[in-house]
C-alpha cells in the first residue's frame, strides 16, 4: 500500500532528494538550512538566524527591488537559476543608480528535487554574491508537493544605497540624444530557447547572464551625461524603447545595421522567425546619452573590454510612431512591442 499523497514521511539519513518534511519546520528543515544553505551562504548577518536580521546599509535612504525566477531549464549554457537570481536583482539595483548591498533569498523547492542540484544552485548563488560584493541577509525555504512547481523557484529582494550622482531617468531624454548598447542583445533568451527546444546547434548560443557592475563602473565618469540606463530583459530592447518613448514623449529611432547581435543568436532568430529586438538579454544595458559624448562613452566601454558596445539609434521629436527601426535599405518601419512569448514561423 502506498503512502497517502503529500504525507511527510520521516526521511532516512542519506536521502538524496528534497522531501516535504524539509519544509515542515522540524529537524529536517533545520538540517537543510544549517547544513546546506547557511553553510554555503554564511555571513555575519545571515548567521544571526533571527526571524528578522539586522543589517547596516550606511544610508538613510535605500533602494529596494524584488524579482522571482522560474527559468526552465534551471541549468543552461552560460548560467543557472541561482546566479541568474543574483545578477537579475543586482542589475535592477545597478541600473537604478544604487550600490547593491544585500539580498533576501526565498526558495520554493519541488518535492523530489535532487539535493545535489540544490547544492549546485546554492554554490552558484554564493559565487555570484561574492563577485558582486553582496551577501544574503535573510532567507526562507518552502517545499511543495511534486508537480506543483518546476524543480525550484527563487525570489530575491535586493537592497542598495544610492550613489552620489544618478542618471535622471528616461523622462530626461530629449531630441538629439543618442541610444547606446553595452553588449550583444537577445543572448539570454535565445540560449534558453535553444536549450529548451533542443535545437541542437553547435556551437549553441550561451546566456550573457552576468552582473553589470563593470559597465556601470566604466560609465561613472560620464554619469552627468547619461540620461537613462536599463537592462533589456523580458520584452527586449523593443519593450524598453517603448517605455522610454512614452516617458520622454519623444520618438526613438534605431539603426538595424548597428545592432550588436551574435552570429549564433542571429541564426536562431532567422530560423524561428524572431526579432532579436524582442528577445531578453541578462548582461547588457541600453543607455540614453548626450550626443556630445556618445562616441567617447562607446569608446570607453570598448576600451574596458565591452567590445560589442555600439551606438544604435537616436532620439528625435515625437512623431506618429513612438519607436522605429531603419533597415539596411534605409526603410523606416515601426517597432512594436512583443505580445508575449515569441511565436515561431511555420513555413
Amino acid at each position: 500500500m502506498s503512502a497517502l499523497p503529500g504525507c511527510p514521511l520521516p526521511v532516512p539519513e542519506g536521502e538524496q532528494t528534497v522531501c516535504l518534511a524539509h519544509g515542515e519546520g522540524g529537524l529536517l528543515t533545520r538540517r537543510l538550512i544549517r547544513d546546506r544553505i547557511q553553510r554555503v551562504l554564511s555571513n555575519p548577518v545571515l548567521d544571526q538566524l533571527a526571524d528578522a536580521n539586522q543589517i547596516e546599509l550606511g544610508s538613510p535612504r535605500l533602494f529596494c527591488t524584488t524579482d522571482t525566477f522560474v527559468v526552465s531549464p534551471q541549468f543552461f549554457p552560460g548560467g543557472d537559476i541561482g546566479s541568474l537570481a543574483v545578477y537579475g536583482t543586482v542589475n535592477d539595483l545597478l541600473v537604478s543608480g544604487a550600490v547593491p548591498v544585500c539580498l533576501s533569498l526565498g526558495l520554493i523547492l519541488e518535492e523530489g528535487l535532487p539535493l545535489t542540484e540544490l547544492d549546485r544552485i546554492l554554490a552558484s548563488i554564493q559565487s555570484a554574491c561574492q563577485e558582486c560584493c553582496i551577501y544574503v541577509a535573510t532567507g526562507d525555504t518552502k517545499v511543495v508537493p511534486r508537480g506543483q512547481c518546476d524543480r525550484i523557484y527563487i525570489n530575491t529582494t535586493g537592497l542598495g544605497r544610492p550613489r552620489d550622482t544618478m542618471p535622471p531617468g528616461p523622462n530626461a531624454l530629449r531630441p538629439g540624444d543618442v541610444l547606446l548598447l553595452t553588449g550583444n542583445i537577445a543572448q539570454h533568451g535565445i540560449a534558453i530557447l535553444a536549450e529548451r527546444e533542443n535545437l541542437g546547434l553547435t556551437p549553441g548560443p550561451r546566456s550573457d547572464s552576468k552582473s553589470l557592475a563593470g559597465e556601470v563602473a566604466c560609465l561613472l565618469p560620464w554619469f552627468s551625461a547619461v540620461r537613462a540606463l536599463r537592462d533589456p530583459t523580458r520584452g527586449g530592447v523593443a519593450a524598453v524603447c517603448q517605455e522610454w518613448a512614452e516617458a520622454s514623449r519623444c520618438t526613438l529611432s534605431l539603426d538595424e545595421t548597428c545592432l550588436p547581435v551574435s552570429p549564433e543568436a542571429r541564426a536562431v532568430c532567422e530560423l524561428l522567425g524572431l526579432d532579436p529586438l524582442h528577445i531578453a538579454g541578462e548582461g547588457n544595458m541600453l543607455l540614453g546619452v548626450d550626443s556630445a559624448v556618445a562616441e567617447q562613452i562607446a569608446a570607453a566601454l570598448r576600451g574596458a573590454g565591452y567590445t560589442e558596445a555600439a551606438i544604435i539609434g537616436k532620439v528625435r521629436p515625437r512623431d506618429l510612431v513612438p519607436v522605429t527601426v531603419v533597415t539596411s535599405l534605409g526603410h523606416e518601419r515601426p517597432l512594436v512591442e512583443p505580445l508575449g512569448a515569441p511565436l515561431p514561423r511555420i513555413c
Binding site: 506618429l320 510612431v321 526603410h331 523606416e332 518601419r333 515601426p334 514561423r345
Partner: peptide, 27 residues
C-alpha cells in the same frame, strides 16, 4: 507571422503612414 495584416502592422513604411494619415494612431 505570415499574415498580410500583421505584416502591415509591423512593417508599414513610417513616412507613408504619416503622409496618408492611415488608421494607425493606435501605435
Amino acid at each position: 507571422s505570415e499574415g498580410a495584416c500583421a505584416a502591415y502592422y509591423h512593417y508599414h513604411e513610417v513616412p507613408a503612414m504619416s503622409a496618408s494619415g492611415q488608421a494607425v494612431l493606435s501605435w
